[in-house]
Nucleic acid binder design. Structure first.
Length: 450
DNA sequence: ATGTAC
């Protein structure tokens, strides 16, 4: 190994990481050329090459880039809006709201939306990111201040995105996708950090909306294309790696430059996508509840590669199922977030709860400014379906006061609460380490899924 | 995650 990897978890989490092979994947990741820091969060589970919940930073003369360390859903991420309305005032509208959200936001595998981008527009969008959506009328300029990196990676180069990837993305802007992607309306159930919550405009009982999705078919195709190219690069540059799924190339290699250009485009597409979905969903909320004011708290990427400076070194930081969690005072933060640390949004599962945290005081030191991104799967999709067979998950959730609609019944099986670890445990582990610290707990009221 | 296996 080129560095000593660290897994932040408890005894139970360590056991499951060993059992599902993700611990071995952590070790494999630390064997990549130029790896200077490898860590994994308590939501760690097995992924393609590198585990979900992992952070890999490479630097120095051997630094490499690995598409498998970003993953297939490039810039999968999450955003949260707070509303000026309380749970009590909104609760009775939920059965109607879930339907109007479902109508407003196209969801499901392969699903396209109402926005069709011609060649010129898609290239423009891939360069501009979230700003393209704002200029097209989805949301406001002010939103961009609450998006990580202002919703744009500047090294995006759309000439590096294949025709097939462009084609797959052309009608998927403003669509949710499937799997664990969702739009959820919920409320703040508990406040842990009053001063921060107040600075962020959050209070107990307040209604809000979380959106979780990524770059859809476009990003998936970028990863497919470049996984192929990097497998060749491994031979070409004679790189010794323990798992071909971690195929990598030197940062300076043409393959890496091309991947970074394309990955940046997929990241920008995802930010543009969440910006559009936010706008569509807010319209549905206003239609159902009648004139609601909203404020975008933050939008975070959790599958992405960025160049950051840590301890005086320029590093290629790959976060895969791990979110950025910069501490208070970080140079890349601005406004109130510079004072508090950045928001860290940690979705749980459909039935239990989620957390909004802040970048903790130890995150820079322990995990290169990174934290957990969610609960983490406990059961594989297949196991979850087996356990859910014959049950009516929507009815079970409804009995708990959570209204759910999904494009595919199977996805409710795969995504049922028991398929996930308890996010409370995950949040407590990172809180205890001061990687990220709890600000509020959210509870769901209605959810739409792909 | 994903036109859920080219």
């Amino acid at each position: 190994m080129n560095c000593s990897p660290v897994v932040f978890t408890d005894a139970e989490g360590f056991k499951t990481a060993k059992a599902d092979g993700s611990l071995r994947q952590v070790r494999n990741t630390a064997m990549l050329p130029g790896a200077v820091s490898v860590s994994a969060m308590p939501d760690i589970h097995h992924g393609y090459g590198m585990p979900i919940g992992g952070v890999l930073a490479t630097g120095g003369s051997d630094a490499c880039i690995s598409p498998g360390a970003v993953g297939y859903d490039i810039n999968c991420g999450v955003r949260y809006y707070s509303f000026n309305i309380s749970k009590e005032d909104a609760q009775s509208f939920m059965p109607d709201l879930v339907k109007s959200l479902y109508r407003a936001v196209p969801s499901g595998v392969g699903k396209g939306g109402d926005i069709h981008l011609n060649a010129k527009e898609i290239h423009k969008l891939l360069s501009m990111g979230a700003k393209w959506s704002v200029q097209a009328g989805y949301g406001t300029e002010a939103d961009l201040e609450s998006v990580e990196s202002a919703g744009r990676l500047d090294f995006a180069d759309s000439s590096k995105v294949s025709e097939l990837a462009l084609k797959r993305g052309a009608d998927q802007l403003g669509t949710l996708g499937s799997g664990n992607h969702f739009v959820e309306i919920g409320y703040i159930d508990e406040v842990y950090d009053e001063p921060t919550a107040e600075l962020w405009g959050l209070k107990k009982g307040q209604l809000g909306m979380m959106i979780h999705t990524g770059s859809r078919g476009l990003g998936h195709q970028v990863c497919t294309d470049y996984s192929r190219s990097f497998k060749k690069a491994v031979k070409k540059y004679n790189i010794d790696i323990p798992d071909i799924q971690l195929a990598c190339a030197p940062v300076s290699a043409q393959e890496s430059k091309d991947y970074l250009g394309a990955m940046g485009c997929a990241a920008n597409f995802a930010w543009a996508n969440r910006q559009v979905i936010g706008s569509l969903a807010l319209q549905a909320v206003s239609d159902s509840l009648g004139g609601v004011q909203s404020n975008l708290l933050y939008d975070l990427a959790h599958n992405i590669l960025k160049f950051e400076e840590h301890n005086g070194m320029k590093l290629a930081v790959h976060r895969k199922g791990a979110t950025r969690a910069f501490s208070a005072g970080h140079i890349e933060l601005s406004g109130v977030y510079k004072k508090t640390g950045q928001p860290v949004i940690v979705p749980g599962d459909m039935g239990r709860c989620s957390f909004i945290m802040k970048g903790g005081e130890k995150s820079m030191e322990l995990s290169l400014g990174s934290a957990c991104h969610g609960a983490g799967r406990k059961l594989s999709r297949k196991e979850a379906v087996r356990n859910a067979r014959g049950r009516n998950i929507a009815a079970e959730l409804s009995a708990q006061g959570v209204h759910v609609m999904a494009a595919d019944k199977m996805s409710l099986f795969e995504e049922m609460p028991e398929a996930y670890k308890d996010v409370q445990v995950v949040a407590d582990i990172v809180s205890g380490l001061k990687i990220s610290e709890k600000v509020v707990k959210l509870k769901p009221l209605c959810v739409i899924k792909g």
